[in-house]
Design a protein around this nucleic acid. Structure first.
Lengths: 156, 156
DNA sequence: ATGCTACTGTTCGTATACAAATAGTACGTC
DNA sequence: GACGTACTATTTGTATACGAACAGTAGCAT
């Protein structure tokens, strides 16, 4: 049986469209695999990539509003809301009213949150390493650059 | 203010961890942007990338079981279930019992489904094009190759 | 025939992701 | 000082994504 026979069939009439080579499909699968690896590396602490991102950014900023945290971590207001709620519920994040703007909330890390971020950092690095395991140093730089261009929609 | 002053702050004690340069973060943002573009291109037909993928694969295979469709489109059984249910509800997909294996279901495209795939194809191509707009032909090939390696976790 | 293993689809619970709409408040202009 | 615009967080609804557990059945070994 020729490869042609297996790859065509009923699609003969239609224009050829190979799902596996579409950028969206490969992007989704690559992301899925990374999330799976991340969950594996972070199993002990049970943090999702989004939760970890939020914790890291709160640490960087010391104190942030919820919406700003969402912008820093690429999550819309409705999404970051849920993420933050779960972090507060686990006692990792503290929420207090903003002293100047009553609309805004002030998010900070609890002591437990700071400790957890510290112990999570090496695990996050391991997730990155395992995701990129089969890529050379040059390939990693290329991928980083190309994905950044894709993500921003700009030229660099 | 030096760039150092803005990039450190309270993270002084901790090891430096730049979220924006982590592969998982960039991967997520790139995927988000593509999904957004796809939704934009497909607004008229209101198909998600996953729904479109499923339709294309059913067309390729003429008839598939639900779980196999999930494997072809990189969705686990619980996820593909919901996707297929919505496609059936919209009258795009037909479900019939498998003649040989009573556990299995036979999914096929309805006439409406076939027509919709045909008109959706150019829109999906446009989504791909717009996502990759800022990349040269060589860069697109590189990205495709690198993402494929990431997705499979293998060397090519 | 019996039994073991693997696979079918399904359900439940949790966690993103985002559009759309909401109430409340800041901030600028006039 | 009123006012429109923009921003704060929140709610609702829909759609993935997936671990875990489930009943039912196929297929194979004995």
């Amino acid at each position: 049986m020729s490869p042609k026979a297996t790859s065509r069939r009923a699609a003969d009439a239609a224009v050829l469209y190979e799902l596996e080579s579409q950028i969206g499909f490969v992007l989704r699968r690559a992301h899925q695999r990374h999330v799976s690896i991340f969950a594996d590396c972070m199993a002990e602490l049970s943090l999702t990539p989004q939760q970890f991102s939020a914790l890291v950014k709160i640490q960087d900023e010391v104190a942030v509003s919820q919406n700003r945290l969402g912008r820093l971590t690429a999550m819309d207001p409705a999404t970051i809301l849920g993420v933050v709620q779960r972090l507060i519920q686990r006692g990792l994040v503290n929420r207090s009213p903003d002293p100047v703007d009553p609309r805004s909330t002030r998010l900070t890390l609890t002591e437990k949150g700071q400790e957890l971020v510290a112990s999570a950092l090496p695990m996050a690095r391991e997730a990155t390493d395992r995701t990129l395991a089969h890529l050379s140093s040059a390939e990693r730089k290329d991928l980083q650059r190309l994905l950044s261009k894709l993500a921003t929609g700009e030229d660099e």
